[in-house]
Amino acid sequence: MMQIPCPFCGPRNESEFFYGGPVRPSRPDPAAVNDEDWTAWLTQVPNPLGPVQEHWWHARGCGTWLTIWRDTRTHDVVEAPDDAG
């Protein structure tokens, strides 16, 4: 089973976590950006063949939200949050 490194609990089984989606840039002011950038923010996320940055919630553990880089080809966690066990 995939292990996700929690900064408080150390590496834990994926079944303790809820997936929180890929990391997106913060919502732009729709009036301040052009239509192309606005619809791109609404509808597109990075879809790399390789590491992707995403949120996970340690819901069945300590309850913290964390951000990892995970390789979409292997599911290896290639970069963990600081201080992760």
Binding site: M2, S15, Y19, P22, N47, E54, T72, T74, H75
Partner: peptide, 15 residues
Amino acid sequence: TGQSFRRDIKQTVFE
């Protein structure tokens, strides 16, 4: 749940 280019089944999904 997350993005994936793998072609096998994950243990969590199977369970």
